[in-house]
Each structure stands twice: as structure tokens, then as C-alpha cells.
């Protein structure tokens, strides 16, 4: 369930983020509060309008005096909270997380259809990542091009599950799911059959639009041509909430 369904008669709390005194509704998450106040916090699996997954851990922030890191997308604002969104430690962790994402699958930005329009790439640039300190796994990943309109390239998937959630929660088709653990973890369509043979897929393309990388893409696109449009999502989500 979405953590942040708007309810009436919720309390307002006050908290400190990066030294600023702010107020928020108690049902808001820290990430939402930060977004509202234009405090930059990186995120990948979070997407407004979808439930919270808290899998990528990029949105980690520090809770002062607790020496603890929490995922801001999955932590509610609370009275008296003191939050730090940027520190040497956070930057180091975030950088490492992104590098591990790159090392896990095969990302060749130069030829990728999402080159220049990719959330992973943008984050990497913003964090100043110019090389990967870990050995690439160089795992052989397949590409499912069986669908008439779309394509899934496991080489570029970061397992954020946005596709799973949008298909289930917004479209209501639940084509996508997650199979396997650890390095065997994969996104699958229906019961692990080629996407083109899926009987549940409605060809709506929502998963393609929400996918942050070049993993889910339109057929017929060449390098750098895949630009995603997710305007539909908050609009649909708001209409449903009513």
C-alpha cells in the first residue's frame, strides 16, 4: 500500500532537516518533505504515485544523534526529528550503491537507447562517478524482444520494481513480478514466459514509461532515442485516491 495516502485530520509535526526548521504532516515521508522543500535527495525505486518499495537505498539520510541511516522514502516524519541529507558518509554510500548497480549488469551507455535520458546515468553523473571500483560481474544477460511494441533488456535492469508496481497498482494487470534471489534475481512476465506470449499484458506501456533505465523500452528506437514520459502517473494516482 502507498505509505502516503492523504487523510484528513492528520497532525502536523515539526522537524529539522539539514538545520532548517520545517513542518510536515505526520503521514508524509521524509523524502516527500524533502521534495516539497526542494532539498535534493537521490532516489531510484521511489516514484510518486506508486507504493514504496525501499529497495535501492539511495534515498538514505542520517538521523542525528542516532547514528543510524534510514531510507527517507520509507520513513515518516515525526515530531522533533533531526535529519541530515548530505554528509561525507552518505555520499560515499550512495556512490558505492550506484557503482554496484553498474557492476551488477552490463551498462554500455554509449550505445544504449536511453543514453542521455536515463535516471541511473544522471545520478552517476551527479555523484561524480567516472569509474567503477568493483569488478564487473559480466554476467550473460538476455534480452526479451518478443513483444510487438516493447523490449526488456535485463542487461540494464536495476531491479527497482517500478514496472512491477505500476502494472499491478495502476494498470491492474500484474504482468510483472520478481523471481529468484541475489544475483539470480530477475524481472519476469507472467510465469516466466516471453513477454510477447503474455496473456495478461494489455500493451499499455506504463512499465516502459516508469522504468528509470534502458531496461524497458520501445521497439524501433536507436541509441539515445528513448525518452520517457511519466506525466500520466501522478495524475492517475491522484484520481484513484479520490
Amino acid at each position: 500500500m502507498p505509505l502516503s495516502t492523504a487523510r484528513s485530520n492528520v497532525r502536523v509535526v515539526t522537524l529539522k532537516i539539514d538545520g532548517r526548521d520545517l513542518s510536515a504532516r505526520e503521514d508524509e515521508t521524509l523524502l516527500e518533505v524533502c521534495r516539497e522543500h526542494r532539498i535534493p535527495v537521490p532516489s531510484l525505486c521511489y516514484l510518486e504515485g506508486l507504493s514504496v518499495w525501499a529497495g535501492c537505498r539511495l534515498c538514505m539520510v542520517e538521523l542525528v544523534n542516532q547514528n543510524r541511516l534510514v531510507a527517507s522514502c520509507a520513513t515518516r516524519a515525526a515530531e522533533g526529528m533531526e535529519v541530515q541529507t548530505d554528509s561525507e558518509r552518505l555520499r560515499r554510500y550512495r556512490r558505492t550503491l550506484i557503482e554496484l548497480l553498474f557492476a551488477e549488469r552490463n551498462h554500455v551507455c554509449a550505445v544504449c537507447v536511453s543514453n542521455g535520458h536515463c535516471e541511473l546515468q544522471t545520478l552517476a553523473q551527479r555523484l561524480g562517478i567516472d569509474h567503477i571500483r568493483f569488478a564487473y560481474r559480466q554476467a550473460h544477460e538476455v534480452l526479451d524482444s518478443s513483444h510487438e511494441l516493447f523490449r526488456l533488456d535485463h542487461n540494464r535492469c536495476i531491479l527497482c520494481t517500478r514496472c512491477v508496481r505500476v502494472c499491478d497498482e495502476i494498470e491492474g494487470a500484474h504482468v510483472w513480478d520478481v523471481m529468484g534471489r541475489g544475483s539470480q534475481c530477475r524481472i519476469i512476465s507472467d510465469l516466466a514466459i516471453p513477454w510477447g506470449q503474455s496473456e495478461t499484458c494489455t500493451n499499455c506501456g506504463k512499465c516502459v514509461q516508469v522504468c528509470p533505465t534502458g531496461a524497458l523500452i520501445k521497439q524501433g528506437t536507436s541509441a539515445g532515442e528513448m525518452v520517457k514520459d511519466r506525466h500520466f502517473l501522478p495524475i492517475l494516482a491522484r484520481r484513484r485516491a479520490r
Partner: peptide, 13 residues
């Protein structure tokens, strides 16, 4: 295993 549309960019490199 790559889509043919990637070939121009791949071979250019």
C-alpha cells in the same frame, strides 16, 4: 543477442 538497431552505435565504437 543485441538488437540490430544497436549495431550502428556499437560498430561506430
Amino acid at each position: 543477442g543485441r538488437p540490430y538497431r544497436e549495431m550502428p552505435a556499437l560498430t561506430a565504437r
